[in-house]
């Protein structure tokens, strides 16, 4: 029963949601809307579970003095501090936050936004290093990839058009990169999308029909 009941619920609700896509009658659409609203609430609880899990994993690491435990303290203090300040601001401002001038907004603008931007900006430096050390052309396929990458990389920015402005229009980097994006790239991307969609449908059917059971967990 421990496995059969969840399998039955999954199958029944899965089939019902597929039915709701094709049957607009209110006997179907109203329960389907209710189930979707439930999904929104369940996802929101995922944040609570995620936060609790982060705390558990890091507090364990700190208590065992694992490698980098000092960073874990910073993480836990930041997490708890941000949540506490957020709750206090939310209570003070009738549930609306982060409002201008509040500590939450300060944390968001001066810590979260700047650190996120910094992490993303570091990519430019590592890409340059990786391009120099790791992007090696050893086969014909790798050569094609490199040529396409160079054309798109330079054609997407103004310097590509400026450098090839003396060539006929169809040979300029901007035009060539647009052709690569519109034709070969698009064809392969469409194939991947269709393949992935078929895979998703197959997996969905396997879950609904009870063939795929890994989501139930390993133990009986």
């Amino acid at each position: 029963m421990k496995r059969e009941v969840p399998l039955f619920i999954t199958g029944a609700i899965g089939l019902f949601m597929i039915l709701s896509f094709f049957v607009p009658h209110h006997w179907v659409s109203v329960p389907a809307d209710f189930l979707q609203a439930c999904a929104v609430i369940v996802v929101a609880f995922g944040y609570v579970l995620g936060g609790a899990n982060v705390l558990r994993v890091n507090l364990e690491g700190i208590s065992r003095r694992e490698r980098g435990w000092g960073y874990k303290i910073v993480l836990v203090v930041s997490l708890l501090g941000t949540v506490a300040i957020g709750i206090a601001d939310g209570l003070r401002h009738n549930g609306s936050f982060p409002v201008e001038g509040t500590p939450s907004k300060w944390i968001y603008d001066n810590l979260y936004a700047t650190m996120s931007g910094t992490m993303f900006a570091l990519l430019a430096f590592f890409i340059a290093s990786a391009a120099f050390r790791a992007f090696r052309i050893r086969t014909f396929d790798a050569g094609l990839l490199a040529v396409a990458a160079l054309i798109v990389m330079l054609g997407r920015v103004p310097v590509g058009d400026v450098a090839t402005s003396w060539l006929p229009e169809w040979l300029r980097l901007g035009t060539l990169q647009q052709w690569i994006m519109d034709v070969p790239q698009n064809a392969s991307k469409r194939a991947i999308l269709i393949g992935a969609a078929l895979g998703v449908m197959a997996t969905g059917l396997r879950v609904i029909l009870g063939i795929e059971r890994s989501y139930l967990g390993g133990e009986d």
Binding site: A124, I127, A128, A131, F132, F135, A146, M153, L154, V159
Partner: peptide, 13 residues
């Protein structure tokens, strides 16, 4: 930036 990355790919190879 793009020009430099392209240069890195060519020179590296």
């Amino acid at each position: 930036g793009h020009l430099f990355v392209a240069l890195c790919i060519v020179v590296g190879n």
